[in-house]
Design a protein around this nucleic acid. Structure first.
Length: 902
RNA sequence: GGGCGCGUAGUCUAGUGGUUAUGACGUCACCCUGACACGGUGAAGGUCGCCAGUUCGAAUCUGGCCGCGCCCA
């Protein structure tokens, strides 16, 4: 890096330092906003209500960059609506994340060589309690550091008292309606965590295994038997049959016969069932009803078959009377090896082959799921689905981006009952008691006093707890006091937008919809916005597991919350998976520095006691073109910005603002208005330039505020302003500035000239410090007028000493420094241009004649002339005219290349 | 195995029937110009994955193929 140049005495007032120091500024505004209570949702809202419930982060960990992305999107929405005058409630909270938290704490304890399973329940709870306190404090600090405008006065926790009541109430209502039942089913059993889990918590992975072909000998002692293929030989002790497809010719003769289960004395029948896949193995399946879903279904269809108890215990070790003593106590791996050995030495194995298949594992423990017949609680989800499907279909609830609707419908249509009971400590206990006298099942919000059936008074509570999602699915209304009819519920429910990652679309979003309609009769939200996933610089998804997700607080400390927020929204689309790298964050920081310096420049030109820009400056006849233009551009930008925000296009919104601030306001307007600002165009021009710049910058600060609240608040207070804080300032309207298509069109012509002269200078090799003279010839009436009027800007920004009327080169004047645009021709008066000047012109000619060629070709096509809309044909004809003319000019000016060149 | 999505300069990306294909990062050249070198100015860089089809006309629509990703079983 270059050494800092020797500092000149700055013109800036001392109050605004040359660099934005986020650490100090951000903390200061966060405090100020909190003290002013701007983010507390009013109890008596005047305007329309706008509600977001923050997806409660899990106490499992602390906030990741992904959370910051979601929070930023929500804050943009919340602040935008607040500025538009809506009564905004953004409700924060925390999720107890039952099983996930227990696993995290279990792992944490394991580091100290403590087994969670061996601790008394109360100690487990207090260990989890301590864990929660720590994480909660960090999460809160992270949220505050991000500058997120949540209403902390309404903070909720899925384990607080009100949540406990709401959870129990919901359970009892569904139970009473017959939508919750207890039953014996094959469930996904996690042997390491010793609990059932739901289908959604199971992940499937392709893994290598060995497929064994086992011969089950005929029970009558006749030679041979039936060959069954299996990857789980250790489960043969639970077999009750061998099944084949009823139409399978190969096994027709076997039907009705009996076989002996290898290594046992048990005799089982060969049965027919249409569910058998004839293509798999030999087409014969061993039926083990306690350890496989399909096998259980087969057993249900064949009531004559016994359903023996499980031959694996809850940690998936071989157990029970059916298992030969030699194998008892072995886990699945060892059991499989031992049983395989025994089968091989006893001669039952006909064949072994390597086999790749999909293995179900627990999302939480990564242990292989054991399908296990057990008694659990279930919610009849299919019965809750119809209003949800209808709402999404009708548009009452809209998903953004809407392509996710298909995925959503597919899942909704294939719903299965939801297993909600978990055999763990950390969670809401299932609100069910069993009467000790008559065995009645009593679901009640408060513990029962007497049994409604037999009036007994002694009860045994259900030992299980609820899946954490059984509480989370009520988040939009339980947080507002449901089942009580609270004021918040009346005012702020249904909520407006839910912002979340699509990884929990089924876990949470769909279930919230079901709960919303079931318990409140209304949609819980009208829009769902799914954010994308962040990837690191090597393209991997950021995850805690990979350890490639930077700690948000570190990034905030390094570059500031505003830089982080902006970088999360720009340039990579928030609704797509995309990279987030150090360069992304620097880009955000650079933009804020640009904004900051624009503010410093403006401040240096604002006189003491200048008024806040209440309305746009009225421009008159004779106002500067750039002033008319920037107001019109601001209007266009504001209109597009509103449209982008309305349609959840946050990256588009951020892009519009960045383009406007950097390229329109800083690069063009400020550069053009500089001499006016310095007073070189007179007092009137100076005042107008100040007023225009102040107005546009102030309105732009408002528009940027939802995205980068701290830096905008700081700048706003440094400049003339009216009102308490930008956080509660009014959102601008495009109508504040006049529409001015003439100014927009004229600026095109002027800018074309400036760009052309700059390009000519560079290509001709004019040293940066020299200002050559130039000549100009406008080729259209409109460009003649505008380029004449704006000659001062054209020469200053085009970096030429002066522009004379067109003249042909004379000796000592290199003719190659020449350019032709749609509006004018330009020459630089220089002795020797570098060859690139001529090359540039030649390249331009080549490109133009290519386009001309193609356009002529199109026009020559009868089909085009007769079928294309008249306007398209006319445009093509105009293009041919314009290009022909331009090429003619390029050629016409082509003096002998050597003329005048030494 | 099923479903969904995506392939546009080195990288990321805009663009849903007629544009001289957008912007950013990176690269190269010049420049510390009275806001900003976290900056300015200029430039180079693309057969819009491949093949068919529809159409007067395809980056854009349809089909197939190839590659990548995600979800589900």
């Amino acid at each position: 890096m270059l050494p800092r140049r020797p500092s000149r005495e700055p013109l800036m007032p001392k109050e605004i330092p040359p660099r934005f120091d986020p650490a100090e500024v951000e903390a200061r505004w966060q405090r100020a906003w909190a003290e002013a209570g701007y983010f507390r949702a009013p109890a008596d809202p005047k305007g329309a209500a706008f509600t977001i419930v923050l997806p409660p982060p899990n106490v499992t960990g602390v906030l990741t960059l992904g959370h910051m992305l979601g929070d930023t999107v929500q804050d943009v929405l919340a602040r935008w609506h607040r500025m538009r005058g809506d009564a905004v409630l953004w409700l924060p909270g925390l999720d107890h994340a039952g099983l996930a938290t227990q696993v995290a704490v279990r792992r944490h304890l394991a580091k100290e060589r403590i087994r969670l399973e061996e601790l008394p329940r109360v100690e487990v709870l207090s260990a989890i309690g301590r864990w929660k306190e720590e994480r909660e404090a960090t999460i809160r600090a992270q949220t505050e550091a991000g500058g997120f405008s949540v209403d902390w006065s309404r903070y909720r926790y899925t384990m607080d008292e009100a949540s406990v009541r709401a959870t129990r109430e919901a359970f009892v209502r569904l139970f009473d309606a017959g939508l919750i039942y207890r039953g014996e089913r094959i469930v996904n059993w996690d042997p390491r965590l010793r609990t059932a889990i739901s289908n959604l918590e199971v992940v499937h992975r392709e893994e290598e295994a060995t497929l064994l072909y086992l011969e089950y000998p005929w029970a009558d002692g006749s030679p041979g038997g039936i060959v069954v293929a299996t990857v789980r030989p250790e489960t043969i002790f639970g077999d009750v049959a061998v099944a084949v497809h009823p139409d399978d010719e190969r096994h027709r003769a076997a039907l009705g016969r009996t076989v002996r289960v290898p290594l046992t004395d048990r005799v089982v029948p060969v049965i027919a069932d249409a569910a058998i896949d004839r293509a798999f193995g030999n087409g014969a399946l061993k039926v083990t009803p306690a350890h496989d879903v399909l096998d259980h279904e087969i057993a249900v269809r064949h009531p004559e078959l016994p359903v023996p108890p499980s031959i694996l215990d809850e940690e998936a070790r071989l157990a029970g009377d059916l298992v030969p003593a030699a194998f008892r106590g072995l886990d699945r791996e060892k059991g499989r090896a031992a049983v395989t050995d025994a089968l091989e030495s006893a001669g039952f194995v006909r064949r072994k082959e390597a086999y790749r298949h999909s293995v179900a594992r627990s999302e939480r423990s990564d242990d292989v799921i054991e399908p296990r017949l057990s008694t659990q609680w279930f919610v009849r989800l299919p019965d809750l689905a119809p209003p949800v499907v209808e709402a999404v279909r009708s548009g009452a609830i809209r998903l953004h981006p809407d392509r996710w609707e298909r995925t959503f419908f597919r899942w909704m249509e294939g719903l299965e009952d939801w297993c909600i009971s978990r055999q763990v400590v950390w969670g809401h206990p299932i609100p069910v008691h069993y009467c000790e006298s008559c065995g009645a099942t009593i679901a009640s919000v408060d513990a029962p006093q007497t049994c409604p059936k037999c009036h007994g008074a002694r009860f045994r509570p259900d030992p299980d707890v609820l899946d954490t999602w059984f509480t989370s699915w009520m988040w939009p209304f339980a947080t507002m006091g449901w089942p009580e009819r609270t004021g918040d519920l009346a005012r702020y429910y249904p909520t407006s937008v839910l912002v979340t990652g699509r990884d929990i679309m089924f876990f949470w979003v769909a279930r919230m919809m079901m709960a919303g309609f079931r318990f409140t009769g209304e949609r819980p939200f009208s829009h769902v916005f799914f954010t994308g996933m962040l990837r690191d610089d090597t393209g991997r998804k950021m995850s805690k597991h990979l350890g490639n997700s930077p700690e948000p607080l570190d990034l905030i400390r390094e570059r500031g919350a505003d830089a982080l927020r902006f970088a999360l929204l720009y340039p990579n689309p928030v609704d797509q998976d995309g990279p987030f790298t150090a360069a992304t964050l620097e880009g955000g920081r650079n933009f804020l520095t640009k904004l900051w310096n624009l503010g410093r420049l403006l401040l240096s030109h604002v006189p003491e006691g200048a008024a806040a820009p209440a309305v746009a400056p009225a421009l008159r006849e004779g106002s500067a073109l750039e002033s008319r233009w920037i107001l019109a551009r601001w209007r266009e930008t504001t209109r597009a910005l509103d449209a982008a925000l309305e349609s959840f296009e946050f990256t588009q919104a951020a892009t519009l603002l960045l383009q406007f601030v950097w390229h329109d306001l800083a690069d063009r307007y400020v550069e053009m208005a500089k001499d006016a600002l310095k007073g070189e165009r007179g007092e009137r021009a100076r005042t107008e330039a100040r007023e225009v710049l102040l107005f546009v910058f102030e309105r732009t600060l408002r528009e940027l505020h939802p995205f980068v609240p701290h830096v905008t608040e700081e700048l706003w207070h440094a400049l003339p302003h009216e009102g308490e804080a930008l956080a509660v300032a009014r959102w601008p309207s495009p109508a504040e500035a006049p529409d001015d298509p003439v100014a927009l069109a004229q600026m095109e012509i002027l800018w074309d000239g400036i760009r052309t002269l700059r390009n000519l200078r560079a290509e001709s090799g004019v040293p940066a410090t020299e200002l050559p003279a130039g000549t100009i010839r406008a080729t259209l009436a409109e460009s003649e007028a505008i380029l004449g009027d704006q000659a001062a800007l054209l020469t200053r920004l085009g970096r030429v000493a002066r522009l004379d009327p067109w003249s042909e080169p004379s000796p000592g004047w290199d003719p190659r420094a020449r350019a032709v645009t749609p509006y004018a021709e330009y020459r630089l008066v220089i002795e020797a241009a570098s060859p690139e000047a001529a090359e540039g012109l030649a390249r331009e000619r080549e490109k133009l004649s290519g386009i001309l060629e193609r356009t002529r070709h199109r026009l020559a096509d009868e089909g085009f002339r007769s079928r294309a809309p008249a306007q398209v044909v006319a445009e093509a004809e105009e293009k041919v005219r314009e290009l022909t003319e331009r090429i003619r000019r390029i050629d016409g000016g082509a003096e002998p290349a050597t003329s005048g060149v030494p």
